[in-house]
Amino acid sequence: MGRVTERRKVIRVRDGQVSERPDTLVAEEPLEIRLNGKPLAITMRTPGDDFALAAGFLVSEGVLGAADELQSIVYCAGATAEGSNTYNVVDVRTAPGVVLPDITLERNVYTTSSCGLCGKASLDAVRTTARWRIDDTAGGTAPPVLLATGLLAGLPDRLRAAQRVFDRTGGLHGAALFSEAGELLDVREDVGRHNAVDKLIGRALQNGGLPLARTVLLVSGRASFELAQKAVMAGIPVLAAVSAPSSLAVDLAAETGLTLIGFLRGSSMNVYAGEHRVALGAGAVRG
């Protein structure tokens, strides 16, 4: 829709020289998500991939887990008093027979840091609603994912190279999905890091790709509890971030078997949980 970026006037000061010029900024608009016609949530996002964003959000909330549970997603016409379509309201219709969890406009939320729930309640909520186990004990004969540190070290540069809108604006978070062999499977950008992840997960749901087993989710910012929760709900075994994790994200990773890596910068990284999936090498020294 051509709404990903916008132009604004800026006064630029460089080495004492002042000039006036247009600047390219990332667009930010509200998106209202309705579920079967009823308002559910509002998020601030960068327009684009709105249907995937809505689908991914509902995966994170435990509503959807497979493509056949999703009947349709449409923009709502008549969203304004004049009856025009703002393309800022989507309605998600679930397939007949899908049982909905008890969620409200306040999101009944265990996903935001301001929800007021204690850490234990937040962890319990994810554990009881997650559809897939990622702790390598759920059966099957495939060996656990094992990632070389060298492979992990190269992922941030590949995410950065794939962020096309960031190059023009410098104002977007990025999220990328890689295979265990390091193949870039998908990348999304958004003004909100959680939205970028929802767009990745939503596209996977629409394509029948859940659970996202044997993959690595890389995010350009910090690893919050909310992002760890989204990884677990999508069946992703490894979450890596270029910045720090929160304490509750580490607790959730330890609780569910998620491998959580922070401060992934060059050849350096901190492994906070799930170290069995990282090949640290025979020469690694534990102090």
Results as ranks from 00 to 15, higher is better:
A79Y: 03
W132A: 07
E106Q: 11
A79F: 07
V59G: 07
M44D: 15
R45N: 09
L146M: 04
A79K: 05
A161G: 13
R160Q: 12
D167N: 11
D167F: 11
L70S: 06
L58C: 04
W132S: 00
L100Y: 11
A67F: 05
T112P: 08
A79H: 15
A176K: 03
T137E: 09
A148S: 15
P143D: 05
P143I: 02
T94F: 08
L152W: 00
G62L: 09
C115E: 12
V92Q: 04
L117P: 03
R158E: 10
F178L: 01
A95P: 02
R133V: 00
P144H: 03
I73L: 07
A130T: 05
E61R: 12
T128H: 10
G97M: 03
L70G: 05
L177D: 00
I73C: 08
E69Q: 15
A67M: 06
Y75L: 12
T169R: 10
S122D: 11
A81L: 13
L123Y: 06
T141E: 15
D68P: 02
G139A: 03
V126S: 01
P143C: 04
G62M: 07
S113C: 05
G83H: 14
D102E: 15
R158G: 08
L58P: 03
R131C: 03
R133D: 00
T112A: 12
V165G: 01
F178Y: 07
A77I: 14
G140N: 04
P156Q: 10
A153C: 10
G150K: 09
H173Q: 04
